[in-house]
Design a protein around this nucleic acid. Structure first.
Length: 499
RNA sequence: GGCGCUAUCGUCUAGGGGUUAGGACGGAAGAUUCUCAAUCUUCAAACCCGGGUUCGAUUCCCGGUAGCGCUACCA
């Protein structure tokens, strides 16, 4: 509904465009749940011609690490979606403090001189709930100022309006109308005793300042949102719209954690295992969101067109990986693997080939672009992860085949003598035939007829001789790509094995 | 403990007061085929429990149960 009649509308238009943000705290690698949050934000921004902000929520200096920052950027870079603006909270401390003290000046926060809780002894449990500290809350402004002036350390706490019996409320785009009695919200901290802002304060101050219009984040923040609404209000800012995402959990139902569940929760693990970023994005989008049209395999462009907050559901989603990691393929959620295979098949050969080449080279094997381009169509339907190229096409990359069991050379319903006969015949036939699909087909079928055996019995010994195993791409295409020289050398070797 | 959120096949999900409860992955069987894949066909597989509302609840309401989240001077 653009209005062509007036260019004056331009401002209104741009101000109505959403601004969303992804705000990871650099305390660990980028995990799949964070990646999904990023993707949903990005999709929402793109879908609605909005702005995607990346903000590092790094106010916890104790726990932040450069390694984590790197891991986050590495993961995001692999996803390849990008963002429009970038900020670091640690560079915005002045804003946070200003906001906190403005709230204090309004009487909506107070100094708490109680020493910080030592350790985190009581965090896991069912102990008594701390809601507020009457002594500190009721301290007169004069005494509070005096003690502060005397250098006594304090945290700044929000004075939650508990007496009036009021409710804090907000509308969540996913979970609907939310309300909570203010009396059930504790007097949370705004500033720590070292003057550093807490997450709640910094996050809200920044969201307001960066004019974020929609906060799309994990459901673990749903109950925190009541606090945030209070902060926005106290700071005189309009609260953004909220959309909370159901959490991604492990098969055992618990939150994904590297400690418990290993590397499967890290985005870079998927990259290194040979996932296509677009397949990974596709997979993540199907966790907690649905296009509601029975479609599963979606490109990033399609996702962008289809994405909406209404399609997000409310129940946690299980990332169905296997706990005791076996082969890579078995480790990951089967649906992720299947989607990856689908995306691989959907890729043009040139494109797939170009993505495969570096993997082969990194494994120390030799291929040139032309060769890879000819191999790719033969394995495209046989690989699920990019790295599978190494096992699916191994025999193309080496000069000498590794050792294999000579018994494999024996055809179905045949014996060693038949294998020998076949290979000797093949040696002769292959020396004289043009190495193209049709001539090979004719020559080899003809040879089988001459020997009075089935075509399959002819093909298998040759396949094993050339590939080193029974399961391989179709024979004629394989021979064509491999070439006469290597083929004959390998058949020769095989003859030696059955002799 | 308090507060909050959630509950459809093993998993991801669609649906919604009356349906043979739909799709996908995975599983099983078959077709095809030079092996393996891919492809196609078929099959098995679900509305947490108890009340209410209603002519009729899987769907709406309440309760229970279970799971998850928050309850830090972490984010």
């Amino acid at each position: 509904m653009p209005d062509p009649s007036s260019s004056l509308k331009k401002d209104d238009l741009s101000s109505s465009r959403p601004r969303v943000r992804f705000a990871p705290s650099p305390t660990g690698f980028l995990h799949v749940g964070s990646a999904r949050t990023f993707i949903f934000n990005w999709l929402y921004a793109r879908r609605n011609e909005g702005t995607m902000v990346l903000r590092l929520d790094d106010t916890d200096v104790e726990r932040n690490t450069d390694a984590s920052v790197n891991s986050i950027f590495e993961g995001l870079k692999w996803l390849g979606l990008g963002w429009d603006e970038e900020y670091k909270q640690s560079e915005r401390l002045a804003l946070h403090q200003k906001t906190a003290w403005a709230i204090f000046e309004k009487g909506l926060a107070y100094r708490d001189f109680t020493p910080a809780h030592t350790g985190d002894a009581e965090k896991s449990g069912a102990q008594g709930t701390w809601l507020f500290n009457p002594g500190m809350r009721e301290l007169s402004r004069e005494e509070s100022d005096r003690r502060a002036a005397a250098g006594e350390p304090f945290a700044l706490r929000f004075r939650v309006p508990r007496e009036t019996g009021e409710e804090v409320r907000f509308a969540d785009a996913v979970y609907g109308e939310q309300r909570k009695a203010a009396a059930d919200i504790e007097d949370f901290a705004l500033l720590r005793s070292d003057g550093m802002p807490t997450y709640h304060l910094a996050s809200c101050a920044d969201d307001a300042d960066l004019r974020i219009t929609h906060i799309i984040r994990g459901q673990d923040h749903l109950t925190n949102t009541f606090k945030h609404v209070l902060i926005f209000e106290a700071a005189g800012a309009t609260a953004p719209k909220f959309a909370h995402l159901p959490l991604l959990v492990a098969p055992d139902g618990t939150k994904l954690s590297k400690r418990r569940h290993g590397p499967v929760v890290s985005v870079t693990t998927y990259r290194d295992a040979g996932f296509l970023p677009e397949a990974f994005i596709n997979f993540l989008c199907l966790l907690g969101w649905s296009p509601k049209n029975d479609r599963e395999q979606l490109s990033v462009t399609e996702l962008q067109e289809l994405f909406s907050l209404e399609g997000i559901n409310r129940a946690n989603a299980v990332v169905n990986f296997k706990e005791p990691a076996t082969t890579p393929e078995e480790t990951f959620d089967p649906k992720a693997v299947w989607l990856n295979a689908e995306h691989i098949r959907a890729l043009p050969v040139e494109e797939l080939s170009a993505r495969l080449s570096p993997i082969v080279r990194e494994a120390g094997l030799g291929v040139d672009a032309g060769q890879m381009l000819r191999i790719t169509p033969l394995i495209r339907e046989r690989i699920k992860l990019l790295r599978d190229v190494l096992t699916a096409a191994d025999f193309f990359f080496v000069d000498q085949l590794g050792p294999y069991d000579p018994a494999e050379l024996i055809p179905q319903k045949g014996d060693a003598a038949m294998a020998k006969k076949v290979l000797e015949k093949a040696r002769v036939v292959l020396a004289g035939v043009e190495f193209k699909h049709d001539p090979l087909d004719q020559a080899l079928r003809g040879a089988a007829a001459e020997l009075g055996i089935k075509a399959g019995q002819m093909f298998q010994p040759i396949r094993v001789a050339v590939c080193g195993r029974k399961n391989a791409p179709p024979l004629f295409e394989t021979l064509e790509v491999l070439g006469r020289e290597k083929t004959l050398a390998r058949v020769e070797q095989a003859v030696g094995k059955v002799a």
